[in-house]
């Protein structure tokens, strides 16, 4: 059995990162607090993973103000969406190969 591990994206090894990316591929944008609530993670944890994805250029950060409150939104880049799709394809292939 050959496992295409080399095709699995290292950036998505962490589950939170994969979850963040899956939110951003189905939504135009998502804000920090809603992400935190949805994924049930701590501020620090979420922030560090968002940083990681930003460094890979998989997501873009938009900072703005809602009245006086800072409102940070995240958007998936084309590169990020592509990487996410490839990662899922690789997972799918892996499952197929274990079944046959």
């Amino acid at each position: 059995m050959k496992i295409p591990f080399e095709k699995l994206d290292k950036a998505f090894e962490n589950r939170v990162r994969l979850q963040i990316m899956s939110v951003l591929v189905v939504n135009d944008r998502y804000d920090f607090n809603s992400l935190k609530e949805l994924l049930a993670v701590t501020d620090g944890n979420l922030a560090s993973h968002l940083k990681g994805l930003e460094k890979e250029e998989y997501i873009l950060v938009n900072k703005s103000f809602l009245g006086r409150k800072p409102n940070t939104n995240y958007v998936a880049t084309a590169k990020g969406k592509q990487a996410f799709k490839q990662h899922l394809d690789a997972l799918e292939q892996f499952i197929k190969s274990t079944k046959s």
Binding site: R15, L18, Q19, S22, V26, Y30, L38, L91, I95
Partner: peptide
Amino acid sequence: ELASIRNIMERS
């Protein structure tokens, strides 16, 4: 992993 992705996409 895949189930959690699908769930998050739906719920988000």
